[in-house]
Amino acid sequence: MLDGMAVQPVLLSKWYFGGLASAGAASITHPLDLLKVQMQTQKGKGDSLFKLTAHILKKQGIMGLYVGISASLTRQLSYSTARFGIYEVAKQHFTPKDGSPLPFYMSAFLAGLGGFAGGLVGNPSDLVNVRMQNDIKLPSEHKRNYKNVFHGMYSVATKEGIMQLWAGASMNCSRAALMTIGQLSFYDQIKALLLSTPYFGDNVVTHVTSSLSAGAIATTLTQPVDVLKTRAMNAKREEVKSVFKLILSTAKEGPTAFYKGYIPAFARLAPHTILTFVFLEQLRINFGYVKA
């Protein structure tokens, strides 16, 4: 009892739900992620989204849009399981006993912490994912020809050194922290705001509205770091001397270079975020646990 009132039971997610939900979403949105990577690694003006799509379909058919899917799923099962798991467990631990919401600054801090850890855990599969997706547009003599995510990791470790699996990790972790703040803490904040009105209930409409808004915020926060991360991961070791030099070389292309691929990034992240949270909420509703 608290002030004469019983604490209402709350239906909570299990720590691994986020990874499962993200993997399910990635299996649907992977073609958009592939197009985003190819646009980000273009130098200069580059081809449009439609030209890139047409080129892939002409050369490799529909399956060309699913190059690197094994790495994409492995990335979500490592990166997203870690970031969602840390955020959910920490949020449930620190939420006040009276059921009042966690302050936004605390939610954002926990999301950033979870995202940073997830970025570190998921970096090897993310690196292979970027390289497999970019391989499709390279001339045959420069292709890496990874058969799958595990072959890719083995090739990188044996040919370039095991630490190369964490190439771009500083930018990847920074991006992951910003992404998780944009997606998780803003999703919770927007959802709570909607539920405080008489017009929304805990249903799919609210979940889609909250996740779409969170996806837009996350894309805007992360796009500059995402461009740098993609270029660092795709480059050979000798081509990237420091993060500062990478920033300078990108800046020489103009300020819009940091937002290259923004449209496919949002076009991919918006449905990915929506699907992730719809799947997550369904897992919570159907397989979650009750905490009084």
Rank of each mutant, 00 (worst) to 15 (best):
W15L: 10
V89Y: 05
G46A: 10
F94Q: 08
H272P: 01
S170Y: 04
L73M: 13
Y187L: 07
F244C: 11
L228Y: 07
R268W: 09
K43P: 09
I263A: 09
V89P: 07
S13T: 10
A108G: 11
N148V: 08
Y79L: 11
F186G: 04
A21G: 06
M233L: 14
M63E: 03
T209Y: 03
L184W: 00
S27I: 02
N234D: 15
M132T: 04
M39E: 08
F266H: 00
V10P: 13
I62Q: 11
T273R: 06
V208R: 01
L269M: 09
L32F: 11
L212P: 00
S174Y: 07
T74Y: 10
L73A: 05
M233N: 09
A157M: 11
Q133C: 10
F279R: 05
V7H: 11
E238Q: 15
F279H: 04
D126E: 14
D126A: 15
A257C: 12
L178M: 14
G24D: 07
Q133D: 13
L113F: 13
S72W: 05
F116M: 10
F266D: 03
I285Y: 09
N203C: 13
W15D: 06
I28K: 13
S48I: 10
M233E: 13
A214E: 01
L35T: 08
T219K: 04
A90N: 10
F279T: 05
L35F: 13
T230D: 01
I274A: 01
R75C: 05
G119Y: 00
M132W: 04
T222Y: 05
T250M: 08
G99M: 04
F94P: 01
K236V: 13
S174F: 09
L34K: 04
N203E: 15
G182V: 06
G46N: 07
L246C: 11
N172T: 12
A82D: 04
N145L: 11
N234G: 09
L221A: 11
S211L: 06
G201P: 04
K59D: 02
K245W: 08
F266Q: 00
A21M: 03
F94A: 09
W15G: 09
G61Q: 09
P264T: 04
R237S: 13
G112R: 06
A169K: 02
M106K: 15
I190Y: 03
G182E: 00
D135K: 02
H93M: 12
A218M: 03
L127R: 03
Y16D: 12
T95S: 14
G99F: 09
P9F: 07
Y79C: 07
F150R: 06
I181V: 15
K147P: 14
L77H: 10
G4I: 06
S155G: 10
E281V: 04
R175S: 01
L138P: 07
F150D: 04
Q42L: 08
H142C: 12
R268V: 06
H142F: 14
L65V: 12
P224A: 03
F50Y: 14
L65C: 08
K260P: 07
T41P: 01
T276K: 02
V89N: 05
A25K: 00
V225M: 09
G119Q: 02
